Computed example of a mutant assay.
Amino acid sequence: MTRPQRRRRHGWKRMRSVPVILAACAFAASACTSSGETENNKTPSVVPTVSTTPSQEQADPTEAAKADVVKVYAMYWKEMVRLFADPSANTSDSLKRYAASEALSKAETSAANLKARGRQLAGQPIIGNSAVTAVALDRQVPSVKLSSCMDVSNWHLIEKANGQPAPVPSERLVKYVVVTTAEKWPDGWKVIRDEPQEGQPC
């Protein structure tokens, strides 16, 4: 190899090492030499291994699924409250982001019945103590089951015309267990069944 070739090759190697040196300075400034040192006297810089926390899904798919379903269930009920607060409004499309199958059809049917009777639900239910009771991610359609405590004591049936309370059974249970099944569909987790266990107070 001729002397000019050796010079060009040596210069290319130095240019190629610039990004590596910059990365080393970014992650550990102490590993980089001071500007007063010469090229030959520099102590070789060591780029530290950056320890990153793996994402929840990478760390444990089961825990990620649990967290996702709990969030989806909260959004499902947010949309349910909107739907029943005004059955005349077109809110079922929003609910479809979080519900499907039996859960969606029951919600739409119930809202239609309220609308036909001129009634709506005012206030806010409280969904508490949501706990995952089963996870099946190895199925063709992955599923997760939840158990929650539904408190409807501040969710009132009223007459839309005058805002007055509509008659309801006096002995009705206002706090009871709800068993929920969610499935992972192509566009995300969806509640497919939400079954009140009205014989099980909580």
Rank of each mutant, 00 (worst) to 15 (best):
P4D: 06
Q5G: 13
R6Q: 14
R7L: 15
W12C: 15
K13V: 13
R14F: 03
R14H: 11
M15F: 08
S17N: 14
V18M: 06
P19W: 13
V20C: 02
V20L: 11
L22C: 12
A28F: 05
C32D: 00
E37P: 00
E39W: 14
N41L: 11
N41R: 15
T43R: 12
T43M: 14
V46T: 13
V46Y: 03
V50Q: 05
V50P: 00
S51Q: 09
T53C: 10
S55K: 14
Q56F: 04
E57V: 11
Q58G: 00
Q58A: 12
A59W: 06
P61G: 10
E63L: 09
A64R: 09
K66L: 03
Y76G: 10
Y76P: 01
W77C: 04
W77H: 15
W77V: 02
K78E: 15
M80P: 01
V81P: 14
V81F: 14
L83D: 08
L83T: 04
S88I: 08
A89L: 08
T91C: 09
S94H: 10
S94L: 12
L95I: 03
K96E: 11
R97Q: 15
A99Y: 02
A100E: 07
A100Q: 07
E102M: 04
E102R: 12
L104G: 09
L104P: 01
L104M: 11
S105I: 07
S105F: 01
S105C: 00
T109L: 07
A112S: 11
A112K: 07
A116R: 13
L121F: 11
G123Y: 08
G123C: 11
G128W: 04
V132F: 03
A136T: 03
D138F: 04
Q140R: 10
L146V: 02
C149K: 01
C149D: 04
M150R: 06
D151R: 08
V152E: 09
S153W: 09
S153V: 11
W155M: 07
W155V: 00
K160I: 02
P169I: 00
P169N: 08
R172Y: 02
R172W: 01
L173W: 00
K175S: 15
K175T: 14
V177I: 09
V177D: 08
V177M: 11
T181W: 01
V191D: 06
V191R: 05
